[in-house]
Amino acid sequence: MKIFVCIKQVPDTETKIKILSDQSGIDPAGIKWVMNPYDEYAVEEAIKFREKNAGAQVWVITSGPKARAVEALRTGLAMGADEAIVVNSPENLDAYSTAKGLAAAIKAEGGAHLVFAGKLAIDSNQSSVPQMVAEFLEIPHTSVVSKFEATAENVTVERDVDGGSKEVVQMLAPALVTANKGLNMPRYASLPGIMKAKKKVIKEVEFSSLGIAATEQKVKYVGYSLPPEKPAVKQLTGDASAQVSQLISALRDEAKVL
């Protein structure tokens, strides 16, 4: 019984983003790459499932340039995943092609009983690939999940929706869920885990071998630019009453947001 966890490697939140001079992308120099934070909840939930279900195996999978992307897989292995696959693909593959590649690689491994992923990747904020993987695998999905329970046939989850509401959703397995914060507390990698992950052979699949045509690339990012400089803050001075009345005038007459 294979449990797949789709992982994305993203620049760490603290990383300063610089743009290449031809605006074709971000400057890779100096970027600290980490596993997407939401994916940690996904890995943790998969491992928890394995701990309760003998015979379950956790596979972490990612799509990206393998030279760097494998490091995110090693983080997953260090947390306790059993196996890892990298779909070696070019930078900036769009969501559609990425999902198609991941689904093809999962199918090639005999399919999944469960697929976990983070609810979104903090680099593109797209929240698209997992739902697309589910469609390509022809399995149901629920996104933004903060509670997960599974029997052999069913998956029951709580999905966080707008305004603090929750939906209780039941799906027939195999199924895909995307993890929200609150689903669990991701474990830290243990030292033996890290040592084992370093030695683990990571399975490599060439994206170009999956039979996905170049025309399956449907979205292209161009013209990378930095946000416009923010004007310096206007500090409002005087005592509290003076500050408050200045603020109200500014919001009404200058910013015109009231």
């Binding site: 559609y96 797209q126 929240s127 698209s128 739902q131 697309m132 933004v144 966080d160 929706v161 707008d162």
Partner: peptide, 23 residues
């Protein structure tokens, strides 16, 4: 880009072979 929109439209895109841009 609501809870429903983000969940639904990528799945639709995969179903019909459309491109999707979010956010």
């Amino acid at each position: 880009t609501s809870a429903t929109g983000k969940d639904l439209l990528p799945r639709v895109a995969a179903k019909i072979g459309a491109g999707v841009v979010s956010d």
